[in-house]
Amino acid sequence: MVQSTAKKKKAGNTYLTNFVKGFIRENPIFVFLLGMCPALAVTDSLETGLGMGLLVVFVLTLSNIVVSLIKNLIPDEIRIPSYIVIIATFVTIVEMLTEAFAPPLYESLGIFIPLIVVNCLIMGRATSFASKNTVLMSAIDGLGMALGFTVALMLIGFSREILATGAIGYGIYLPLPVEGSLFNLSYALFNMEVFVGPAGGFLVIGIWLAVFNAIGQSKQRKKEEDRRRWIEKKKREAAERKRKKAMESAGGSA
């Protein structure tokens, strides 16, 4: 009984870690640099980034489920062609649904909806994860990875939008503290339109990557420091013990 609950708990944990890994530790954009084309092209605002992310959530989860369902049926030789067919089918479905139910999103994403087919993230998850794991695991993996992708797109979209227009997303402006008072500041004074253009995408992603690199490196350094200190401490203790022993033996002989 106890054993089974423990087992269940462990299984729950693996599901959870499988879900969470896409957000930070294995983030598709910031760690693996997958799907850079949409990450650069449709992130000029928070809104389009979120829309793109949700389409990828849909396609990646479903394609992972289907790939995992038929993993034993398809011969090894034609694995990659069948994955391409599956993914392209789901992308066509998504394309039609977006056109019907969210025409503004369809307009603003343009050719990047059909280009979900060649997004490295989806093909990569199909070959490296869904083709080897159970259906539930693959679904969770797809959902987590795609949500991590969405969060990254939203982060980039948010930074670009706030730098270019001062809005925090969906065209909402926070009131400036001194607006209309003594200095008459306005957002128009701080707009950097370059960030809404093509160059801004490269710059913002580059800066975020450097920030995450710096965080990762400082963590690494701290870890190494801790380890070094621990080793030194152990060494000192051992030396102390040796000396004590030597003293004792010297005392004994004397």
Partner: peptide, 19 residues
Amino acid sequence: PKAWKGIPISLIVAGIMAL
């Protein structure tokens, strides 16, 4: 600088090329 090595600095270069 160490944090910018590799891809980040390449992206900045690409941004300048886009400009």
